[in-house]
């Protein structure tokens, strides 16, 4: 079981390393969206500080969504996906490894960049720490949920725009508790509840979404 995951993750990372521009695009998108907010809203540090966590979360959400289109599409186009479905390994496991590789390539860099962007928006140390941790827990959930949408829209015309319509409403709980943690800490309420819930979302989506995505892939490949 672990050899399958290991093999799939290494393959996907190797492919991405050979063509780094794909990964970099969504990363730069993340940075650019965040840096547009001071220009669009106000350069006042107080204003930026209050909207900062929300801005970073929404930007992370959009960047993730943008990159989801590539989760299965390359394999779909060159026929690898068909072979993966035909292989004796459980498809849910394959999906899980692809999601893991995708998170390492696009989710983790977002988390690593968050402290830097937090500084740009005037967040203080504690806030940055909490925000980064929520993104660490939240981004895998986004990719897991998003994998269902990516699988459903494979080869569908207008798939890129469609996936946002399918997936963004389902991202709402993660967004709420991700940004909620920071404001809750500032209000002196403690953040354990938010982290527990984000953790619960992660466990729940780890258990359920690979099956749903696998079913969706089979539907799309028929």
């Amino acid at each position: 079981m672990f050899s399958v995951i290991n093999l799939m993750v290494r393959r996907d990372i190797l492919l991405a390393v050979r063509r780094p521009q794909d990964v970099m695009t969504s990363l730069f998108f993340f940075i650019i969206v965040v840096s547009l907010f001071p220009l669009g809203v106000s350069p006042e540090m107080e204003v930026l500080r209050s909207i900062g966590p929300g801005v970073i979360w929404v930007a992370a959400l959009l960047a993730t969504m943008l990159s989801l289109g590539r989760l299965f599409s390359d394999d779909y186009q060159d026929g690898t996906l068909e072979q993966l479905i035909l292989s004796p390994q459980p498809l849910a496991l394959v999906v899980l490894s692809k999601v893991a590789a995708h998170w390492l390539l696009t989710g983790l860099p977002l988390v690593i960049l968050t402290p830097l962007l937090g500084l740009l928006l005037g967040l203080n140390g504690d806030e940055i720490q909490i925000l980064t941790l929520t993104l660490l827990l939240g981004t895998p959930v986004l990719i897991l949920i998003g994998s269902i949408g990516a699988a459903l829209t494979l080869g569908v015309r207008g798939g890129g725009v469609l996936i946002s319509l399918l997936i963004l409403p389902l991202f709402v709980p993660v967004l709420i508790f991700g940004t909620g943690a920071v404001s809750s800490m500032n209000a002196g309420l403690g953040v354990e509840a938010h982290f527990s819930l984000l953790g619960a979302f992660l466990v729940l989506s780890l258990l359920l979404t690979p099956w749903a995505s696998a079913a969706a892939l089979k539907i799309s490949m028929e």
Binding site: I148, L152, T153, V156, L162, L168, A215, I219, E222
Partner: peptide, 26 residues
């Protein structure tokens, strides 16, 4: 938004069988 997503997924897929399965899963 959930309704709109469902309706647009149905509309985007031409093959009725695939549309039925995909939108049902959604």
């Amino acid at each position: 938004f959930l309704y709109l997503g469902y309706i647009s997924l149905r509309a985007a897929i031409d093959d009725p069988n695939r549309a039925a399965k995909a939108s049902g899963l959604l």
